[in-house]
């Protein structure tokens, strides 16, 4: 975790071993060990009262619904909600980035026929609704490049702490995390190529080279050690058809029941086998074949391509990714 904390300084939570409870857009709280600074004023274990602010054309966060749901969860503070119109009257179905962009630049927007900076205009609308609450929660659209400045400007005008309520994809906090991680890679001098898939490899017990597919051309790439971090079923690091489940790049063994009707539970939140689909590894995080030995001596796996854990139920997705990413990288480094 220290490694993560260093790479991503805008995350909080390292001061304690306890989990934090972060309110999310449906109105429940989600336990987590680390959280972006932008949500820290909203933690559910604090007892200051909260005003949740929603925007009338942003359907992913309904403030009154979230507030009522939080109250039902028994949070130790009062929650009120208000729905306002975003300054400048964005069209229905505007992207979250469309909300974030003008806040980032504090661009001019037209309010009641008058042009004025958007942060001030938003703060004014919310201030009119504030009734002594010490903190104000917005859907997670408070800036992409400069979220801190956006929050600081709003806090200044509202005289209250401001936090974000994380929503489903596309998530700006997630994009900010991605940017921070790529920046850290760049600083470390890593070569990065994205956008074209690795589709093939050469080698038997050891991977000699991999091929990147570009529009019908196959371009070879070589390395001493390889780490497979292609994701799970969602990221296509694990694929399936009616008969079987597989790992498409290196053909690593993915344990799964033969009958696809055994891949799931009959209840939506039941014990789903599919949630645990992924490769099995040895202690050195090398994927194992069906007979229990490493598929390749120089291939390791990290993150969601790993099997055997149900991250939605455990809420362990990022934790496993961070821990195994670190360990796989370390082991690969030691092997070079």
């Amino acid at each position: 975790m220290e490694f993560f904390d260093e790479a991503v300084p805008h995350y909080r939570g390292s001061h304690t071993d306890r989990n934090a409870l972060v309110p999310t857009h449906g109105g429940t709280v989600k336990p987590t060990a680390r959280y972006p600074a932008s949500v820290s004023a909203g933690l559910a274990s604090e007892d200051r009262d909260v005003l949740l602010v929603g925007f009338d054309s942003l359907v992913d966060f309904d403030a009154p619904h979230a507030a009522a749901h939080l109250e039902a969860a028994g949070v130790p503070f009062e929650v009120r909600a208000v729905t306002v119109r975003f300054p400048g009257d964005l069209r229905a179905d505007a992207e979250v980035t469309r909300y974030a962009k003008p806040l980032d630049t504090d661009g001019e927007t037209t309010v009641d026929g008058r042009s004025r900076p958007v942060r001030g205009a938003l703060a004014e609308r919310v201030a009119a609704e504030l009734d002594g609450e010490g903190r104000v929660g917005f859907p997670a659209i408070l800036g992409d490049d400069r979220p801190h400045r956006v929050r600081a400007a709003l806090e200044d005008r509202l005289d209250a702490d401001v936090f974000e309520v994380p929503m489903g994809p596309p998530s700006l906090p997630g994009m900010r995390l991605e940017d921070a991680l790529f920046d850290a890679l760049d600083e470390a001098g890593v070569s990065i190529e994205t956008g074209n898939p690795v589709v093939d490899y050469d080698g038997d017990d050891r991977i000699e080279q991999v091929s990147v597919e570009k529009h019908g051309a196959r371009i070879p790439n070589t390395a001493d050690q390889y780490v497979l971090a292609t994701g799970g079923l969602v990221g296509k690091g694990v694929e399936s058809d009616r008969k079987r489940v597989s790992e498409p790049v290196f053909g690593c063994h993915v344990p799964h029941p033969d009958d696809r009707y055994d891949w799931f539970d009959t209840e939506a939140f039941g014990d789903h086998a599919f949630a645990r689909f992924g490769v099995e590894t040895d202690d050195s995080l090398r994927p194992l074949n069906g007979r229990g030995s490493a598929e390749f001596e120089n291939l390791r796996a990290a993150g969601s391509v790993l099997g055997g854990y149900d991250f939605p139920a455990e809420k362990s997705g990022s934790g496993v990714s961070i821990a195994t990413g670190y360990a796989a990288g370390r082991r690969a480094g030691e092997a070079v």
Binding site: T24, G26, T28, V29, M167, A268, F269, F311, P312, G317
Partner: peptide, 11 residues
């Protein structure tokens, strides 16, 4: 499932 159980913690 990830969206409903992780982000929304509905499970």
């Amino acid at each position: 499932y990830a969206l409903h159980a992780t982000t929304q913690n509905r499970d």
